[in-house]
Design a protein around this nucleic acid. Structure first.
Lengths: 64, 64
DNA sequence: ATCATAAGTCAAGCAACATTGACATTATGG
DNA sequence: CCATAATGTCAATGTTGCTTGACTTATGAT
């Protein structure tokens, strides 16, 4: 899965640490998702979508 | 997370086995998701949404 | 040049998702 | 009634998501 997390985060001027705190996950998890090492769980994907006010489909897309 | 998998499947007259084959997962996984024992991974949630021609948000909702 | 912050990554461990194989129970239809 | 399909669940095992703690590299500010 690809995702637009890095851009969305950068648009808001947040560090990975900032985002991690808002999502209540570790900084390493944010980094791993951004760098494509693994996909978030479905519950976490929902929290991400909620935080950015978007749908899961707008943030995550199929591919690689 | 709650989900409408059981209804959507029943509407189409599919058994859990049928659905499992279309999703390329085990029958036990379909059952576990329907009975709320666990949530699917994000990639599997996308396959489910694709299969039913709906968004993830239309099939899965937060709760319990 | 030093200090602080951000980002990337690794290892070890625990939790959650998913598998196969088995068995029990509840429909359903012949 | 009987046979079989369908569903629910369990145990054991493997894979993936997520954690903490640590170390590295790069950047920017003073």
């Amino acid at each position: 899965m690809k995702n637009r997390l890095k851009v969305l985060r950068a648009e808001r001027g947040w560090s990975q640490q900032d985002l991690a705190e808002r999502l209540e996950v570790s900084r390493q998890s944010v980094n791993a998702i951004e760098t494509g090492r693994y996909d978030p769980s479905l519950p976490l994907a929902f929290r991400i979508a909620d935080l950015f006010g978007m749908t899961i489909e707008e943030i995550f897309q199929r591919g690689e």
